[in-house]
């Protein structure tokens, strides 16, 4: 369990560094990938609703530190996305390889749209435009493509938690 606790910040840090240093250069049709959202989705797939919500919240709040949008906005959206993915996907144990990929695509698109809507509700102007769908598509496709790698990474981090939970149950 201690081991697993150390792995959570490590995974967060890896994703954050990649997001802020590598991926900010990558722009397709004026939109870039969002792997903090990917982390929430993948954590939901691997660990179920609880892990999904926790990882989503942590990933969102860490990302919010580096954005100008209100603090907590990404945390709110990502924890709901993580929870939702975990609830839907949690029952599927040994699924075909493409099911997590498709789930990641759908969840990422939904996450981007949900983020734009929530941000609009708290008063951010000009987010709900036709360009939003381009952003959602780019994020969805990129996240789906890299999801197998992210899955492996998060599975490694969450394995200990799961074992501890099973022992607890």
């Amino acid at each position: 369990m201690n081991n697993a606790r150390a792995k959570v910040p490590l995974i967060l840090l890896i994703f954050l560094v990649v997001e802020l240093t590598v991926l900010d250069h990558l722009r397709v049709f004026g939109a870039g990938p969002d792997i903090m959202l990917l982390l929430a989705v993948v954590a939901g797939i691997v660990g179920g609703p609880r892990v999904g919500a926790l990882y989503g919240f942590a990933a969102g709040i860490v990302l919010d530190l580096f954005l100008e949008t209100p603090m907590g906005l990404s945390a709110l959206v990502f924890c709901i996305v993580g929870y939702a993915v975990g609830s839907i996907q949690g029952g599927v144990l040994r699924a075909a390889w493409w099911i997590p990929v498709v789930t990641t695509f759908v969840a990422s698109v939904a996450g981007v749209l949900a983020y734009a809507l929530t941000a609009t509700v708290v008063g951010q102007p000009g987010l709900v435009t036709p360009h939003l769908f381009v952003v959602a598509a780019v994020v969805g496709v990129f996240n789906a493509v890299v999801s197998p790698f992210a899955l492996r990474l998060v599975r490694w981090a969450v394995a200990d938690i799961e074992r501890a939970e099973r022992a607890y149950a």
Partner: peptide, 8 residues
């Protein structure tokens, strides 16, 4: 650095 977000 540029923005890590698609929305700013």
């Amino acid at each position: 650095a540029t923005s890590p977000s698609n929305f700013q």
